[in-house]
């Protein structure tokens, strides 16, 4: 990546971002969307509906939950609540990358439009690479990656729907496992602040724990409660480090 050369070309950075489609996280997500098209067919969702979901909802867990609720015969309100509860994480995810992406001149409507392309993979990829991109090019770079990733996966769903009825169980299992395993290692690898590693450990333990205690709001408790606990631990550690530094000097 030629981040040392200051490029004034927004298109150039858009294309640099678009080339991220050949990265490991993008390839793993694409295999997940092949799996999704098989799941949609199996659940009685039409090709057009599956394509529309991919373009309009984008986040894979939200789509799985919507299909699960729809096929169980839940009404509009119940489906909305199930999907929206599972998508609360989008707010802190987007909020944590916006301060690193925008400049003082970035219009809000552009951020609102681009936020649609944020899901876990794009979030991890952005956290991982945005620091190699000059600030004024970050919006173009993210747009290139996010829009390309969404459109390519929409095409994958359109093409693969009906093509793959079902994988052999072992292949399906391995494909399903790729995504969480990738998130585990990549989020740890891209953590630039100690607070992220502390929240990582607490989230991993609290997620399954709360799923057994309070299955309806488990992710909310684990995320908001666990995240706040991680923040408090990190703040105490930072204060202690600062005090030790002042004592030493």
């Amino acid at each position: 990546m030629s981040s040392d050369r200051i490029s004034s070309s927004g298109l150039g950075w858009f294309l640099t971002g678009a080339r991220g489609i050949f990265s490991l996280p993008a390839l793993i997500l694409m295999t997940s969307f092949v799996g999704f098209s098989a799941f949609a067919l199996e659940s009685g969702i039409s090709r057009g509906e599956a394509v529309f979901m991919t373009l309009s909802i984008w986040a894979l867990p939200a789509k799985m939950i919507l299909i699960g609720s729809m096929t169980s015969g839940a009404g509009l309100a119940a489906c909305f609540i199930a999907v929206t509860l599972s998508s609360v994480r989008m707010m802190p995810m987007v909020a944590s990358i916006v301060p690193e992406m925008r400049t003082q001149r970035t219009p809000v409507w552009l951020l609102l439009f681009l936020s649609h392309f944020v899901a876990i993979t794009a979030w991890v990829f952005t956290n991982n690479t945005i620091h190699h991109v000059p600030r004024e090019a970050r919006i173009a770079y993210f747009a290139g990656f996010g829009i390309t990733l969404t459109l390519v996966n929409t095409v994958i769903v359109a093409v693969c729907y009906g093509l793959v009825a079902a994988f052999p169980p072992l292949v399906a299992g391995v494909l399903f496992f790729l995504t969480p395993v990738y998130f585990v290692v990549s989020i740890w690898a891209t953590a630039r602040h100690a607070v992220v590693r502390i929240a990582f450990v607490i989230g991993v333990v609290a997620g399954p724990l709360f799923a057994m205690i309070e299955p309806e709001f488990d992710v909310l408790y684990a995320g908001v409660g666990g995240g706040t606990l991680a923040y408090l631990i990190d703040r105490a550690l930072r204060k202690r480090a600062l005090a030790a530094k002042e004592k030493a000097s």
Partner: peptide, 26 residues
């Protein structure tokens, strides 16, 4: 810092649940 912590804990809670309570063949 707090927003980063909450975002990470939420994502990892979802991820850990995919491993501990998977759907489908697993």
């Amino acid at each position: 810092y707090w927003v980063r912590a909450v975002a990470t804990a939420l994502v990892m809670a979802v991820t850990a649940k995919l491993i501990v309570f998977p759907t489908g063949t697993l």
